[in-house]
Design a protein around this nucleic acid. Structure first.
Lengths: 329, 329
DNA sequence: CATCGTTGTTCCAACGATGTAAAGACTGAG
DNA sequence: CTCAGTCTTTACATCGTTGGAACAACGATG
């Protein structure tokens, strides 16, 4: 592999002059510049990023801490974060936590200025005390309590409210919710939106219609739906806090011969690709994932240069995608 | 961030002695070792990986070149590759090519010993001439022609044959295939397995039942299925070359009121999570993804130390997961 | 007591890049 | 022809780490 030294020797100039050409420094004689560029071409020089970053005092990486890549929402988001990071000359280091407290803690502990320049976090279990961050960070989603960290995400209350309003507008009266969670801030806000929509329509809040989910996988949605269908009066609609829960719920409905949307309307949250092709296709809240990814990376870019900026809370847009799970073809 | 120098000053020894302790060198006086360890603890020292790797002449990274993270198969695989790489002290750098020739070429061009120690490739469009690799590499899947690169993956012919045999064993006679592709080696082998299974059962190979797919997304499966259902005599079964195609195909079937599996049995390939919860759930060839991931990383580990080993072809196991798309509940 | 091998430690150079400062080349004005 | 001022290039130190050589301390040996 060619180094600056090799190129310099070939071009008959000093290492620094080559470095100057590579980095677009203005004051290089046209003649030398040409010779250096030819030498660069001839050797196929590529900068050694490790060395460059060592010298520049950066690592060239940002961490993306998330529960699991096999969750479609995070897979899709990761692809977009990688694309956004490329524009800032950052590579993305992925850390999977599997949504456990210990996984998240060890991921956070392993971060640090020696490894990454900044971090994007999607925590699910972290407590307030855990946020002892040594690099500029931003979190996606929502935290339950006041934590000293910037945030990027949609307005979860408004989004949940929009979802439930949609169900109400279809004439549904007994609307369940799947995905309540004791510690997750996002869950609390979605529940709040759910309550707000009910209240606004004069519908009662019924305790038994709110089903918790410890995880947000398809299996959890399926299990939650079973318990709802076992009620004396089952719901005529269900708002699931993510698409996987909704897919699981629809699966249970199909097994029990409950017709969606006729007997049961279903709304999800995340708008996974999967939900467009399910049978029936799934009505879902669609956050603008590309906007989230680039907002997060931009924010880190700003703070990497200037670490002590005031905390930010960036709201990204969302929309409601209406499909067959609430409105039949 | 504490460096070796800081630790050395605190412990009252030289930098090298600290380095020796950190790297588990035996001959350090117990007394010094203790002092160094205390200093390490006190400063919270973490090695600067960039500097270490620069000195050691490695980068600490392997590249994972794949079409797109939003494709579930690759998302799941990536999670497993990351886990496997961690055991070899490697971090994973993800490059998305979006399955295009230019994307794959530029990903390959950007690789090199300055950036990664080795690479795992999942190419779809690359030509023989493109395989001018400068780092130890392994490819997943299958190539159409002889390419000088090691490979890890399942026996695609046998797997496809198992899938089609299953359809035949159910009494299906007019079995279609979706996913033929002019350049993809994997597609050619799956088609070969399809033909072999038909031949072995004495069923005719019918040209019109083999539908190409330029991409392997859900939409492509849906489109292909439409063309099959428009035939004068539609098929009574379809073998899709991946699960996404199958999901798309089932979606079209539902839209046309074709009952799966009664009128049409469907088999996929990849065994995505999604396929377990679709309605109906999808029978699929299940490659052992964890085995693929760890075999690929192990292989690279071997070759990173010793670059000129003979090419290898590692076969990993697979199984057929029978679900509702071929056998009704 | 000189020599020896074994341990334990330090010093120095190097990995490949870039910032700094200073030297060298060139220009035009006086 | 000199001098100041601007461009252009270079030598050197440095980022944090590790490999190798050199050196120091030690008890054991002849």
């Amino acid at each position: 592999m060619a180094t600056l030294k090799d190129v310099a020797r070939l071009a008959g100039v000093s290492v620094k002059t080559v470095s100057n050409v590579v980095n677009g420094y203005s004051f290089v004689k046209p003649d030398n510049r040409r010779r250096v560029e030819e030498a660069l071409e001839a050797t196929g020089y590529r900068p050694n990023l490790g060395a460059r970053n060592l010298r520049r005092g950066r690592t060239g990486f940002i961490a993306l801490v998330l529960p699991e890549l096999s969750i479609p929402y995070f897979a899709e988001l990761t692809g977009l974060v990688i694309a956004a990071a490329q524009e800032h000359e950052w590579n993305v280091l992925i850390e999977q936590t599997f949504g456990t407290l210990s996984g998240e803690r060890s991921a956070l502990a392993s971060l640090g200025p020696h490894l990454v320049d900044a971090a994007i976090l999607s925590p699910e279990a972290l407590q307030v005390d855990d946020f002892q961050l040594t690099v500029p960070s931003v979190m996606l989603g929502e935290h339950a309590v006041d934590v000293p960290i910037s945030r990027v995400g949609i307005d979860n209350v408004a989004a949940a409210q929009a979802a439930v309003r949609h169900l109400i507008s279809l004439g549904r009266k007994r609307i369940a919710a799947i995905g309540a969670h004791p510690h997750r801030g996002t869950a609390a806000l979605r529940l709040e939106g759910y309550r707000a929509a009910l209240a606004e329509a004069g519908l009662p809040f019924v305790e038994e219609l709110v089903v918790p989910a410890l995880n947000y996988h398809r299996a959890d949605g399926a299990a939650a739906m079973k318990s709802l269908l076992d009620l004396r009066t089952p719901p005529d609609a269900v708002f699931c806090f993510n698409d996987l829960l909704a897919i699981g719920a629809m699966r249970t409905a199909a097994e029990r011969f409950v017709r969606v949307p006729h007997d049961l309307a279903v709304v999800g949250f995340d708008n996974n690709e999967e939900s467009v092709y399910s049978s029936p296709s799934l009505t879902s809240i669609a956050p603008d994932k590309a906007a989230i990814a680039s907002a997060a990376v931009d924010l880190l870019q700003r703070r990497a240069g200037q670490p002590d900026l005031a905390l930010e809370d960036v709201q990204t847009p969302f929309s409601l995608q209406v499909r067959e799970s609430t409105v039949a073809r």
